[in-house]
């Protein structure tokens, strides 16, 4: 902790601070996924989780391995993948809305046991 304060005044940001933000974002996403009732909100939670991984990549790249841009490009492609996945997921959710007239996840339990 004392490091954090001394760093604060010496004008540098430790890497753990970035990683901490991404972790909080990730587990906020996990919590959202487990508790939200609407399919769209679940999707929002997933965006948070993916975004957290992106921050990790960029942070590690910048702090630890600045000589190459692997984390940078990984993030770039992950953003694209997130877009793909959102598009298909939303298409499916809209389809569910048409069929069931609702986007509540609680309605999705016709199949069980």
């Amino acid at each position: 902790m004392s490091e954090l304060f001394s760093n604060f005044f010496s004008g540098s940001i430790p890497m753990e601070a970035y990683l901490g933000i991404s972790l909080i974002m990730f587990f906020a996403g996990v919590y959202g996924f487990l508790t939200r009732k609407s399919l769209l909100m679940i999707l929002i939670s997933i965006e948070l989780m993916l975004n957290a991984a992106d921050i990790n990549f960029v942070t590690f790249n910048r702090y630890l391995y600045p000589e190459r841009l692997e984390g940078f490009y990984f993030t770039l492609f992950t953003i694209a993948i997130a877009a793909c996945e959102t598009a298909v997921a939303i298409a499916i959710i809209i389809n569910i809305y048409r069929n069931l007239n609702s986007v509540e996840v609680g309605n999705l339990d016709q199949m069980k046991e």
Partner: peptide
């Protein structure tokens, strides 16, 4: 993780 405080060049 490695403790890095300063942003490397």
């Amino acid at each position: 993780v490695k403790k890095v405080i300063q942003l490397p060049l």
